[in-house]
């Protein structure tokens, strides 16, 4: 073999070594998340949305808002937030929901009865590196406590608490809370906004 042939073959072997080294050292993002990183992710507070913030967003008809109800279909049918889309947690990874969840334009808010399902779902989506996903802090329980049945603050409380209370009362009547708590509110049922890019494997070849 002459010099240039040897050089080219060595080049190929080096390239192959590269694939081997990258394949063995760099795993998929899934395996890359170390336990200590996970603690950091969980400890971040900016993944939570308070019930007040959510109420404000719904009332102002924020068009970038997508609310996801992670509970079962029966629970969803009984009561859900207005405009929420039902994706039970166990179906979250289904492909048809990917376009709803994996995007960076809209704000996606997960909720369940308390926070636990939503936290699980959020961990899953954050590992999938989906962006703009938030959790409703305290879930529907907190929603009922704070928005639908707000308690007046003590008379000695700060002025901001009174302001919050008056906002919550307004929200309560907006969402049909107050005296009529528990009744299903009139809600817009939203169909899944599914727009998929056409992706198809190429056929053909020499076949």
């Amino acid at each position: 073999m002459n010099k240039s042939s040897i050089l080219l073959v060595v080049l190929l072997v080096i390239g192959a070594f590269g694939t081997f080294i990258i394949d063995t050292t760099q795993r998929e993002p899934f395996d890359k998340v170390q336990p200590c990183d996970l603690i950091d992710i969980i400890a971040q507070t900016n993944k939570f949305v308070t019930t007040d913030e959510l109420a404000r967003k719904i009332m102002s008809d924020d068009p970038t808002l997508t609310i996801i109800d992670l509970r079962s279909k029966t629970e969803y049918d009984k009561y859900s937030l207005s405009g929420a889309i039902n994706i039970p947690l166990e179906n979250l990874s289904e492909e048809k929901y990917e376009d709803v969840l994996n995007q960076d334009v809209r704000t996606v808010i997960f909720y369940s009865n308390s926070s636990d399902l939503a936290v699980k779902a959020w961990m899953l989506t954050s590992r999938l590196t989906y962006k703009n996903i938030f959790i409703l802090q305290g879930g529907l329980n907190r929603w009922v406590e704070t928005i639908l049945k707000p308690k007046p603050p003590k008379e000695t409380a700060l002025r901001t608490e009174f302001e919050m209370y008056s906002f919550r009362r307004a929200a309560s009547s907006y969402f049909g809370g107050g005296s009529t708590v528990g009744e299903t509110t009139i809600k817009k049922k939203v169909a899944l906004p599914i727009k998929r890019k056409k992706k198809s494997a190429a056929g053909g070849g020499c076949d």
């Binding site: 190929l12 072997v13 192959a16 694939t19 081997f20 080294i21 394949d23």
Partner: peptide, 12 residues
Amino acid sequence: ISDGLFILLLTV
């Protein structure tokens, strides 16, 4: 085996 290992073996 992994893809990278296979490519390496094939090349060698």
